[in-house]
Design a protein around this nucleic acid. Sequence first.
DNA 1: TCACATATCTAAACGATGTTAAGATGTACT
DNA 2: AGTACATCTTAACATCGTTTAGATATGTGA
Lengths: 195, 195
Amino acid sequence: MPQDPQTKATYHHGNLPDALIEEGARLLAEGGTDAFSLRTLAKRTGVTVAAPSHHFGNARGLLTAIATRAFEKLALQMDVAASSAEPPQDAVLAMCLAYFEMRTTEPGYASVMFRLDLINPNDAHFRKSAYHAFGLLEEMLTRAVPITVGAAEISTIAKALWATTQGLTTLPMIEQNEMEQIIRSSVAAHLNQPQ
Amino acid sequence: MPQDPQTKATYHHGNLPDALIEEGARLLAEGGTDAFSLRTLAKRTGVTVAAPSHHFGNARGLLTAIATRAFEKLALQMDVAASSAEPPQDAVLAMCLAYFEMRTTEPGYASVMFRLDLINPNDAHFRKSAYHAFGLLEEMLTRAVPITVGAAEISTIAKALWATTQGLTTLPMIEQNEMEQIIRSSVAAHLNQPQ
DNA sequence: TCACATATCTAAACGATGTTAAGATGTACT
DNA sequence: AGTACATCTTAACATCGTTTAGATATGTGA
């Protein structure tokens, strides 16, 4: 079976781990976490069901890898959003909204980022990726609040906004078009009334 | 097979729907949503695996019933918490904290309340129960903010606090003992700086 | 009291899932 | 060229939720 040297560099399939991550995200985008299955994913990737286990151990390992890449993508979008927003207060808002946009631009990746029941939150790569994205928000907050505000309080605000942004997506009584207004209100509340 | 008339009132098993809900919550409390299985639940309840389907249709229906009861319990605890807190600003905080306490006092029920992927959020009973609990927070907020604040803004604040409270429990970078401080900070921010 | 209708549960089977062990196959390096 | 190794396949397992048909107990009305 000949290989396209551009996309398949080495070994049998080529870069199977990457292919599984990308096709897995595509599968998640189509049918959500319910539709995710190692068997259909293996079929669509052109390998047998046992192949993924060699690279990721088990399904949880693969989903953790997808979530890890998701946070990398989020960090990238947070940087983009922040670079085109002034003052820092607006940049904080833009960084929070980046997650909402990601839910439509990269629904597959976004669907597993906070699914602690599906992934392994203690995985080293995942932790590094997630904390890095979170750190970007903390950094920007230090520039958005008065210098009298301590680091501990800044961290508290960052976690509150992070939680609010994510929590909005899991509530049954909140419509999609309300979310932006709510996060906007939360950012304003925290920035105008620190501590 | 004789029946204890006090606990088993009618038919073969007695009140099987209730037994499934309670034992199901117990199962969830022990091993989380991963450990939940209709088969082990049926075994522990003393019926065969097909029995639950007659009452709840499928596993999602049963989990929805558990989540519905969870919100009923939460509403009860919110009432208790609010009744022993003054002024209304403190009551708002107490109502938010009620969910955190529920995660330790009723871990099984709490584990499925916001799992939109496991339950059916459009179920009539579930909606009624969830909206009722949420309405309690909204009510208390109308007493906690200045009368100049409109209903729409109050609803926004309620949803923000609701989302923050829930979102905190799904973030990998937040420890259990931080959560109370974060929600306390959020309540203060929203109440001192409405809109 | 007894037959009948009905709610409730059982028995059995189905397709699908993730995981594992053993073996085959292709790649890379000496 | 030959060997070591990473990679993937084959095959089998236990477990899962769901469905269908049938057995059983309950409640009702004659």
